[in-house]
Design a protein around this nucleic acid. Structure first.
Lengths: 192, 192
DNA sequence: GATTCGATCCTAGCAGTGCTAGACATGAGA
DNA sequence: TCTCATGTCTAGCACTGCTAGGATCGAATC
């Protein structure tokens, strides 16, 4: 059985290599540059090997998205746990969110702009995505205010952050005033 | 000179046809289906004709975006002018915005998601885009509150609407509660 | 140790994409 | 009527995601 186990290990390792390489290439040159040929060349295998791991390019994007969701959730939890009081936590959360989007634009795209074939906001939503939303919810639920469902409040706050992140990165909002926007957003939306 | 004038008229007409056809095709089957071949076939000309009007597909997307910006600005102005009081106007604006995004998803994408080669938030920003932002500003400037720059407030409110619009349409937010989200957004952000 | 045979991988190719060079026709002005 | 510029099309380039089918390699059997 050890032969088969070794093969499975190698296979799993190659799959990680594919995801890591796709992510790296996407961060370096954008998702448009992530073609199956270039990706295959970088991992030093032929194109069809990719298809023995993933159904297609979409699933590769999805795999990067799941990896990113886990990291993003961790980043947000780390940021909020280091802050004192609900308001400070919300600030830390918002900054961590936008910071992650700025530092990992390709991963952010895989998560929230591209089609990675993942289910969102449903029962069969993958655990990493649920956990990332939970990280938002844990912090934002504190400041939803009376009579407002924490889930709904989280969705709205998240949507606002997402809007700021995407419009800024696509050059539709000048990046200089991001800090002021966050202050306005937190100041008005959060109830302390 | 009348011959030349006639030719220019015909040329302008054909350009309108290209833009209208691209928009129609995009609304029917999505922007991925708008290929230069299909577009050329629909307007009953060969592909290179497209390139005598536009530098490439990107510019065609940009042309659709400009057309859409004009319509969107008009829709928002019509909605706000029919409402009484600042708060009612903001509600009407938000609903008109999301309504436009829902009814014209391809145009909305051309405006705010795809790259149409247009300059945003700059001096050389095309007039229709400036006007659409002005339509937002005219309404939202009323409820920015003391000490908050109307421009900044408008950007933040716009970003929130954009987030709700895009996350909902890509299936990342359940569409049922859009109305509650708008109420929360207006209730907390607008100062009356 | 030789031989089968299945898993694994690669070469080559399909139908499609955006875009363009160069041949061709058409019609306005001399 | 002839010339020639303008406008249009055919054909092709280099690329895309994806796949069929042949070659190869190594594990298990005799």
């Amino acid at each position: 059985m050890s032969v088969q186990e070794r093969k499975e290990r190698e296979r799993a390792g190659r799959e990680r290599l594919i995801v890591a390489t796709a992510r790296e290439l996407a961060e370096q040159q954008g998702w448009d540059a992530v073609t199956t040929r270039r990706l295959a060349e970088r991992i030093e295998y032929s194109q069809p090997v990719l298809y023995s791991h993933f159904r297609g390019k979409r699933e590769i994007i999805g795999a990067v998205a799941l990896q990113g969701a886990t990291e993003m959730a961790a980043a947000m939890r780390a940021a909020t746990s280091a802050a004192d009081g609900p308001r400070a936590r919300v600030y830390a959360l918002a900054r961590a969110y936008l910071d992650f989007a700025t530092r990992n634009p390709a991963v952010y795209d895989a998560l929230f702009q591209l089609d990675g074939g993942l289910a969102y906001a449903q029962e069969d939503t993958p655990e990493p995505l649920k956990d990332a939303f939970a990280a938002l919810l844990d912090c934002l639920g504190e400041v939803a205010g009376d009579g407002v469902a924490p889930g709904l409040f989280t969705e709205v706050f998240w949507a606002a952050l997402h809007g700021v992140a995407t419009l800024t990165r696509s050059g539709r909002l000048p990046p200089e005033e991001t800090e002021s926007r966050v202050e306005l957003l937190v100041g008005r939306l959060a109830v302390v």
